[in-house]
Amino acid sequence: MNPSPVEAARPRLGTLLLRRGALLAFAAILLVFALGAPNFLAPGNLANVLAQSAILGILAFGLTTVIVGGGSNVLSGGLDLSVAANLGLSAAVYATLDNAGYGAFAGIGLTLATGLAVGLLNGLVVVGFRLPPLLATLASMNLVAGLELVLTENTVLPSASPLLEWLAFGVWLGVPALAWVLLGVAALLILLIDCTPFGLRLYAVGEYPEAAHAAGIAVRRHVFASYLISGLCGSLAAFCSAAWFSGSTTGSGEMLLSVVAIAFLGTIFSRRLRPSIGGTLLATLLVGFMINGFQLLNISSFWVNGLQGVLILLVVALSGLSRKEP
């Protein structure tokens, strides 16, 4: 029922169109908003969009890393559905620790450890027990969401540490701190995945595990690492979320589908139509601009979900059609 894995990615007209088309569509959307809402292109607004996109973006980076290492076949490839729940739990852990009077380092350290622990669990189940990532992370998502509920009893835990203050209100060179965090994490991950042997091997593992194995690459270790990175992204995003909402929030799990959508959208922004951090950053911004533009144009934000759904289907259908039948 699934399209069989792509055996050879020959460049076709469709592929080229898709790639150029994605950037053109991006530009067109920006243009429409810029014409419709005069202050859309104001530097303040653009910086604001960046800051607003930080949470979704960082989560999507984590997911992208997992997809790079697991391959983009949805059922058998890499997938981490627990990223959003991880954010919820990490934010709750941070708020709880902060309110309980733990020091800044202990709070930050334990929050990061929470995210890593979730990544560890996923890695263990996927790599150790060979569960399909879709099922494994669906289950761990529920577990993690349950733990968050236990911690927060489904309420908002307010928190206001200096770190959160700085993240929420800090501005450097006229750009808000959250925007810097988004760009910073993106830069770090681009360095890691596009510029190191680790990244190249991760791509090899994801695209053709047998070939990676034959090349002496420790396949399972790389997949494991990708889940750890994703876990870490979950807790990094938790800081951003805690800063944005001045504490932990309920219902962070609802972000999951947007994150998945962004990560899959990101592939059309990469030169080779594969998951990449850069592509995901662009997709994050596209969604961010859409939400922002709708606000400025006074269009109901309820359209955003639907548009995202249509975009996913469009992208997948196009890339599927430009692919040869088995």
Partner: peptide, 14 residues
């Protein structure tokens, strides 16, 4: 359109 069930139903959900 031969979209994988996961992504197709995800799109429908959205």
């Amino acid at each position: 359109l031969r979209i994988s069930p996961f992504l197709a139903s995800l799109g429908s959900l959205f």
